[in-house]
Design a protein around this nucleic acid. Structure first.
Lengths: 244, 244
DNA sequence: ATCCGCCAGATCGTATACAATATGCCTCGC
DNA sequence: GCGAGGCATATTGTATACGATCTGGCGGAT
């Protein structure tokens, strides 16, 4: 079905993220669940019972709990006291806030990254663009997933080029949550215009037109958000649904 | 000694931060340790032995571990596998990254916040400025701590005014880490010029001169960083110290 | 005297046990 | 038939237990 297993999970080196010192086990669980969420194999609202997850990985609830709490911290999981953990189901409002945050942050990142870019970095970006283009022309669920991931990787790649680990970690979280939101609210109509915009952005950077690049980036994020259907309340915010 | 206990910990409502669902206990421990770190009652590098902390709060290691991992995620604590948790000891490089991140983010936050500001918000800011001024004229350790906290609160207050919870959480973390860095690398010479700059910023916003406000904010953050002595490696980064 | 290995204490990593809480079903009374 | 109460089950919250790993000191060999 999907051959994602065989290819490296992501081009971007995940910064040792949190210094949680968590050994490989907890980390592995967390990463597995995170990928599953971002990839939409785990649908929003899905209950993540500690025992069940533990059974899957052959570990005790202790480790699972740790992983779930970490994911909660990243915003990919919500935990309700005495009720358990669920795959996050971001509200339209939360989605808007995520993209608003990105519009605030990413132009600045772009500027900062540009100051550190070497020819090798540009090559890396161009390769990424090629990959995106390839995925854009494929069909099927798995390709769409890969496309969302690749699209996020582009932004992460730029963030990584700032050499700023603090920034990179924030972006990591933002992109993960964005992916979740996109798979939740994304229209079926392919939002592949994104690819062209990525290309334009790289062109602008390479041409030294940083103002233009910044503007393009803001528009690009706007477009991503515009491609969502945030009118529908996709699921159970119950209170908002029931009370007038 | 310090009367901080009697006054509300912070003017800013901490957004339910992570949805860690963690019950009051773990949350309480985390907050207590966080405050102690940011307030510099716990010095960087201090070992936080799970058993000891647990004894202090009369809880088991389980909860302490959770709290420490959360703090690690926030960057206030580092955890070394099989060695335990320590109060973070941010390197000068990390300090630079934190302030670089703030310079990228905060102007945008300012713009966004300004769009939502009501007269009531301005009153709130003015009150904050008065508090800062009062603290500036006091002497003593406790006053200095309060000053650092108040200075951070100003920035948090603006972030809160964006109404963007995602953003607010990032800033929360950034400010906490900034406070830690300031108490680590801050010169004894009072960096109280900050207060005047805060005032100027509010003035600019109120006058609708957002460009000016943004520039002032960037400069302000630059000044905070400039007041640090990042040349000295304050403590044990060992590798960098030993290897030529 | 110095260095090496070994043992003991401390501390962490993980699993398990027990208590607390929520959920669903089932019965009982009306 | 319908609703209330209560028990059974499932799941979480917290504590404890046990094995693993690190740290530091002691004694013997060189």
């Amino acid at each position: 079905m999907n051959n994602r297993q065989t290819k490296p999970e992501s081009v971007i080196a995940r910064p040792d993220a949190d210094n949680t010192g968590a050994e490989g086990n907890q980390r592995a669980i967390r990463d597995a669940i995170r990928d599953a969420i971002v990839d939409r194999r785990l649908l929003p609202g899905t209950k993540l019972t500690e025992t069940d997850v533990g059974a899957l990985f052959n570990v005790s609830r202790t480790l699972v709990r740790g992983a779930l709490q970490a994911l909660a911290h990243e915003g990919l999981v919500t935990v309700e006291r005495n009720r358990g953990a669920f795959v996050a189901n971001p509200s339209p409002e939360e989605a808007r806030q995520i993209f608003a945050t990105r519009r605030i942050i990413e132009p600045g990142i772009l500027m900062e990254a540009a100051r550190h870019m070497t020819p090798s970095h540009f090559r890396q970006l161009r390769e990424q663009l090629v990959d995106e283009g390839r995925l854009m022309n494929e069909r099927g669920q798995s390709a769409r997933r890969a496309e969302i991931k690749a699209s996020g990787d582009f932004h992460l790649m730029i963030a990584a080029m700032t050499g700023n680990a603090v920034m990179q970690r924030f972006m990591d979280e933002l992109i993960a949550r964005s992916s979740l939101v996109i798979s939740l609210y994304g229209q079926s109509t392919v939002s592949s215009c994104g690819h062209n915009e990525h290309t334009e952005i790289v062109d602008a950077i390479e041409a030294g037109q940083m103002d233009r690049a910044s503007r393009l980036m803001v528009h690009h994020i706007h477009h991503i958000e515009a491609d969502l259907d945030l009118r529908v309340r996709r699921a159970n915010e119950l209170r908002d649904v029931l009370l007038p």
